[in-house]
Design a protein around this nucleic acid. Sequence first.
DNA 1: GTCTATATGGCGATAGAC
DNA 2: GTCTATCGCCATATAGAC
Lengths: 227, 227
Amino acid sequence: MAKAGISLKGTKVSTLKKSRSTVEPGVRRRKKFDDKRQFILETALAVFSQYGFHGTTIEQIANSADISKTNLFYYFKSKEELYLTILENILNDWLAPIAGFDEVDDPKTAIENYIRLKLELSRDQPQASRLFCLEIIQGAPILKSYLNGDLKNIIEEKSKVIERWISQGKIKPVDPTQLIFTIWSTTQHYADFSVQVKAITGKDLTNKKFFEDTCQSIQNIIFNGIA
Amino acid sequence: MAKAGISLKGTKVSTLKKSRSTVEPGVRRRKKFDDKRQFILETALAVFSQYGFHGTTIEQIANSADISKTNLFYYFKSKEELYLTILENILNDWLAPIAGFDEVDDPKTAIENYIRLKLELSRDQPQASRLFCLEIIQGAPILKSYLNGDLKNIIEEKSKVIERWISQGKIKPVDPTQLIFTIWSTTQHYADFSVQVKAITGKDLTNKKFFEDTCQSIQNIIFNGIA
DNA sequence: GTCTATATGGCGATAGAC
DNA sequence: GTCTATCGCCATATAGAC
């Protein structure tokens, strides 16, 4: 009787309708509607990413967005729809950086670029990173099918690129998957654990020097180690 | 009016009373009481670490522990007390591994030991790791004072050890704090993101070979990099 | 589109019998 | 110590006026 968690019962994220997409008349009005929807989505992400789905109330989001509770329900028919739409939007951003992984043949450039892109994402979209983390920790009720499908395929594909580099002697032997996990964890850490990072260093990635130092430090360790 | 999040208003974790600690007669009865309390704590950790504070209901915990809701309230006067007690217990475990960091003079041994201990913790106490992660993501309302106090001091102390290694030429120049973050993130990743790890690799740290492979992979990258 | 009620249900916590 | 019953609050969502 799993009671808590989001009861999505097999809802496919990609199947989500944008709602109202069929209405056509009045392009101007339509744009205003979409803009406000977008604004609510961004506001809601900020709240959800801190308190989680259950810890967030519609009223909080409404207050942050300076609208009334009922008005929010005019734009999103339920709390779940709001949450799902956000998660769907995040996925693409989260996945984007790995796309350019086999474009370049030089592993050093490719991997250092990837590290930088992921770290930029942690800097520019820390809330998205945290929401994603919350989702995974809770067992990925919504994203599980995605993890087992698309993501798995992509990683297998990228792993082959890494293995080619190894067989060509361009990098040392290393488990490709473990290497990818290392990159993910080290870069996402600065978004997900930013409170801890800030408590200890007094800085976060919005600090330019700290960003560069962190980027180089991660790149250095992954390429040269410390020995 | 920050409404969500846990409304602890300055409650100091360390000030928590164990409740009933003053009652003396009947050592046998007392032990039974404590045992049951302990059992509830362990059960509750499992639930809290998946669904978070707000996503977890007392009823869920009670069901998991095979007791009634009311009976649970006999052992813990509120949901918050239950949660706080768990968090308090976790902290010590989480911190323990770093203690033996300056005992040994050889950096390779010390750091490889530390990585292994942290990874063992991710294997043996994944729920604790996830609850800790949830807490930090939400802004560490309860642990903030700890992060800024004890933890900061410990890290500064350990950083000096690392800097001594560097000045002695035993390891390459590296920002000590960044090195520690790298170790934390890479090892904790296998607990916090275990669902994702399992989706991609089909394994988790309870698999002996996978544990050893992961441990060596992390140790290798941190010491030798991939170049 | 936006507002003021209000319905509805769930959950933390308590009362009081045994 | 454990149970049954229940209180009271709060959060999601809807109805219906403007």
